[in-house]
Design a protein around this nucleic acid. Structure first.
Lengths: 125, 125
DNA sequence: CAGAATCCAACCGGATACTG
DNA sequence: CAGTATCCGGTTGGATTCTG
């Protein structure tokens, strides 16, 4: 599956036959690496969350961004949107079974991140 | 550590006391979620790799981007840069012990991504 | 080989105002 | 409440050229 990588005596890999399509890491990042995407998925993982609550939970993200990312996550089947016919209307978002398959690495990321010195974290990406 | 989240009868969380600073997921993404950052770290994980080889391995990324991300990873202590006084000069990059602590997450991400249908992957993030 | 420098179009994403 | 619409400045990042 992976391209075979040559290794010389010094332990260096040549790129003679490196991957010509995005590697798995990059493919994954295209799904989950969008701005706020990981945070959103993380915050809907334990049950339905209302739109405005979500927006408040994810400090720094505008409603516009939340909406865009939610639509994308919905299209990809990671998150489900449900309209509650209350008055006024409410909408809740919840992780899907497929979305749950991403929680493994998200939790690894969380564990890793919690040990990080604050000074290391950039203001923005 | 996390803000305490209220849960009502319907299982919804309120944002009354949601996190006011970036949550762990977001903090981690600021380190590892930059464009090409994950891929670069992944490709230097098994030993020293030369700059141009790295650039060829990561298809789609320009040398400018590779350089910028490498500098950032170096500043954060995830990657080490080493100059070999050959002629012409060569430079190799290698993961550090600290960088290795991120591999758990990256490998989980890789495993997840390998199972994804190609149709789901966006052209860009 | 390993970059640095420059240019600039495209996109991102925040702010604001508006809607059903 | 849960968005949509529009504006628009700032940043991103690719292309290209140049260098020690």
């Amino acid at each position: 599956m992976d391209a075979k990588i040559e290794v010389d005596g010094a332990g260096r890999r040549s790129a003679a036959n490196a991957c010509t399509e995005p590697c798995a890491i990059e493919r994954g990042m295209r799904i989950i690496g969008g701005k706020w995407t990981g945070s959103i998925l993380w915050h809907v993982k334990d049950g339905p969350v209302r739109f405005n609550d979500l927006a408040r939970m994810i400090d720094g993200a505008s409603k516009k961004m939340i909406t865009e990312r939610l639509r994308q996550l919905e299209d990809q089947g990671l998150v489900r949107r449900e309209v509650c016919e209350t008055a006024p209307i409410t909408v809740v978002y919840e992780i899907t079974d497929f979305g749950r398959t991403a929680l493994g690495f998200l939790d690894e990321l969380r564990k890793w991140s919690e040990g990080l010195p604050k000074a290391l974290i950039p203001e923005k990406r």
